[in-house]
Design a protein around this nucleic acid. Structure first.
Lengths: 201, 201
DNA sequence: AACATCATGTAATCGGTTACATGATTCA
DNA sequence: TGAATCATGTAACCGATTACATGATGTT
């Protein structure tokens, strides 16, 4: 279970409210890990009960309550341990290739439509991720700004390099997915062409 | 939700018991979709209630009950509709790259260990999948044997080609994962080397 | 005044995992 | 006789999704 650790890792960068975490999740972390506010709020409550974070109630305006959470020393230790543990893989579930493995019985129009969609999706994703990687390399990200001053600049440079590199790899993965779908489309077209020949005989 | 459809698709090849489905799931379908017997039995009950499959009670030996399920006409229609529907993607969750994105703060030994493990895993997986793909191309699989006779040989050839092609793509994906991890290892080594230089100054 | 955004939650449900539970059959 | 395999299930729990619910604040 990593949602808990992603939340912890984000709070380790800077204290935040659940709302802010949900935003960062959607805008920045989504390619690595998805979670919505319905998961985040209960996760925060649990982390606080476990003593890994601490919430401080504040106000926005005059009436509106907000809770800013920050990581405790114990939370920092837990994060370090989590990073040092072997990666916990998820079971393989590949809805795209599962569907694609039936391209022999799928009507050609549907194949073309679904593959076209997939290729477009992954190509755009690749471009966005590559763009993100280059922005991260430059340090253009609020999560870096938040650390400026508090963190030695040499360390900040390393963080930039690491995050940027991983987003580069995510971009490469998306490109691979687009290429894979293109190959599958070729195979499906070839198969349909040869089948039409057969039936024409 | 695809577990339901995977079960339906497997029963469409040939009638089977829950136990047999669980085996096929583990031995053949796992790279595309995972499910254990604890999901399969309830799924079978639900599919039967919905009229998509039909179970026939039989015996193994003299006392041991077993239920062989087969797809109904309605089940076949549902399968066709499922294949024609747009692919339902899963939310992105990438535990490996999530972990790897912290390679800047992770002790070098842990990085080496985890990445070594990942590269080994994916390389072996790639080999197994490539082997599987070539076996599928030859038609060496009980799921093809099951169809021999019942299905025109031209169609059987197409099924072989399609399944084999997808397993080839799964192999390519595993190779990509191994290469990606290798690149990450290079980056991590370079970073640690330059950090050691810094501290030596 | 209306709309977007900030902010926090809960409830029902679903799909999946892990553990518990049982017993027949086959083969060495 | 014991181990592996065949065979079927349930229960507790977990994590995630979707929908429901509320209200303040800032902007146009």
């Amino acid at each position: 279970m990593s949602t808990r650790h992603v939340v912890l890792a984000l709070l380790n960068i800077q204290p935040a409210t659940g709302y802010e975490l949900a935003q960062v999740m959607k805008e920045s972390i989504e390619p690595l890990w998805s979670a919505t506010h319905s998961q985040i709020y209960p996760a925060l409550h649990k982390l606080e009960r476990d003593g890994l974070i601490l919430g401080e109630e504040g106000l926005r305006g005059t009436r509106m309550k907000r809770v800013v959470y920050r990581v405790t020393d114990e939370g920092v230790r837990e994060l370090e341990e989590w990073i040092a543990r072997p990666v916990q893989y998820l079971p393989f579930r590949d809805p795209f290739r599962l569907w694609a493995s039936y391209f022999d019985v799928c009507p050609p129009e549907v194949i073309e439509r679904n593959l076209e969609e997939h290729i477009k999706l992954q190509t755009e994703r690749a471009e966005q991720l590559a763009e993100r990687a280059s922005e991260l390399a430059k340090g253009n990200h609020p999560l870096f700004r938040a650390r400026e001053g508090r963190v030695p600049s040499a360390e900040l440079e390393r963080i930039k390099k690491a995050r940027s590199f991983i987003y580069g790899e995510l971009a490469a993965l998306a490109r691979f997915e687009a290429e894979s779908a293109t190959r599958i489309r070729e195979a499906a077209r070839a198969m349909h062409a040869s089948r039409d020949e057969e039936t024409a005989e």
